[in-house]
Design a protein around this nucleic acid. Structure first.
Lengths: 144, 144
DNA sequence: TGACAAACAATAATAATTATCGTTTAATAG
DNA sequence: CTATTAAACGATAATTATTATTGTTTGTCA
């Protein structure tokens, strides 16, 4: 890594209140240089090339710390287990980033103009699934 | 259950090519009458009240059959494991319902007018995470 | 009604993730 | 620059969610 990247990482850790460790730094760099939507196992495999002794648990722990600190995001909020929709009306979701609650909102009420049909890249868009991330009323109370 | 519900269920099974079994029918009714976003375990607990001998595996299998047949939907396509975003630009996802591939699309290119601020219900909207569901170019080829 | 495929219950197996615990390392106060 | 202490680490056991297997039962349809 170069000096600029190194300083960036130190600042990131400072802000997040995390110690600057070798493992954490390599993980950070590896993530910065990967593309797409890697799984923890894929990230682990990459980091292992530079630190053969690293533990998978360390990778998980630090990915979670990065996510919590907003240094990286996860592809889709995953609810840990499969969830079934019981609301048959077209609707989207309000997801509270604090308490993880999910509220339904009618597609009409959200009023997004969803373009179906072919998008750039030749992707045929059929349906939109929208998560609006934010804070529910209760968590706003608590925060204030 | 009443005769109307029973007929509806038979039609649903017919269309999906599924046998009409007692377990399947009770599961269907239970799901119809639940609200929110129940997990398989929660559904299992409910069904068990009416069929104490039912197996959790049966619940899983039938939920999947219902999802595949489009009788119910899942809350969010879950990728089986945690995935980390490596693209730091604001973007959304094109999700191919056939091959499960995920492509990034710049938020600007998708051109949704995202309303942040307070939504009905007092929810404070901060960010939108949009999955556009459809078929990628390759899967359209295969299908034709 | 009988044959056969589909579905079922029980439960073993697997995959993903998290917890535990003894050891090592970074932060920082002196 | 060293001692103290909390944080982080590696190894691995444990847990959770899900899927596969297998022998038995039950719909479906001739």
């Amino acid at each position: 890594m170069n000096a600029v990247e190194s300083r960036e990482f130190r600042e990131v850790c400072e802000r997040a209140g995390l110690a600057v460790t070798h493992q954490r730094q390599v993980l950070f760099e590896v993530l910065k240089n990967m593309h797409g939507h890697p799984s923890p196992e894929e990230v682990y495999a990459r980091v292992k090339r530079r630190i053969p002794s690293i533990s998978l648990a360390t990778v998980y722990k630090n990915i979670h710390l990065f996510l919590e600190s907003g240094i990286f995001r996860e592809v889709s909020l995953h609810h840990g287990s499969l969830r079934v929709e019981t609301n048959s009306k077209p609707h989207h979701h309000l997801v509270c980033t604090s308490c993880k609650a999910i509220f339904d909102i009618d597609a009409d009420d959200l009023g997004l103009s969803e373009k179906t049909g072919t998008l750039p890249g030749g992707f045929l868009a059929q349906r939109y699934a929208v998560d609006v991330l934010g804070l529910c009323a209760a968590c706003q109370q608590k925060a204030s």
